[in-house]
Amino acid sequence: MHDLKAMTDKERENAADYWRASLKLIFFCLAIWFVVSYGFGILFADALNAIQIGGFKLGFWFAQNGSIYVFVALIFFYAARMNKIDREHDVHED
């Protein structure tokens, strides 16, 4: 672990910026995470069940399959964006 007390003001500001950018991304991803599972799969499941695609009632599909696909996509999206934010703030690993 490198010594943090040795951080200059500029580095400190950069670290704070980086953290804000990370939080923003996390918040955005978790909002989608919440909407597809708790929203589509639970709270609005009954309403969405009125829509049927093929043999699936939409709310039921989100609860049993759809939300899982979105979760997988979300993590990879997050990982890619996070790598970009790392680089922009020059805090990436070598």
Partner: peptide, 21 residues
């Protein structure tokens, strides 16, 4: 039936939290 969705979403959605938090 539909009630079983708690396991499907619950045991996969946790990985989103794990990955990001």
């Amino acid at each position: 039936g539909y009630g079983g969705s708690v396991y499907l979403m619950g045991w996969t959605g946790g990985y989103v939290l794990l990955a990001m938090l």
